[in-house]
Amino acid sequence: MEKYLNEFAVGQKGKVKRITADGKIKRRLFDMGVTPNAEILLRKIAPLGDPIEVTIRGYELSLRRTEAQAILMEVESD
């Protein structure tokens, strides 16, 4: 099943399929290791509902929902 990362629930896991952002945000995502086939686990949502915290390539990354919206995922497990 395909889903954007911002639609994930806490504890859900998946693989990156595609990045739909442009320019600076796209590059930043790539540089932080958010590339196709990278595994991402949604760890936590901030107290006010945004941003979110994910585990990727063995470290913790925080990003906003608007940025997560640009990451198309293949859902692996709940």
Binding site: R28, L29, M32, P51, E60, L61, S62, L63, R64, E67
Partner: peptide, 9 residues
């Protein structure tokens, strides 16, 4: 500015 940021251990 974007908030794509590492949360260090």
């Amino acid at each position: 500015p974007p908030f794509i940021m590492e949360l260090p251990a």
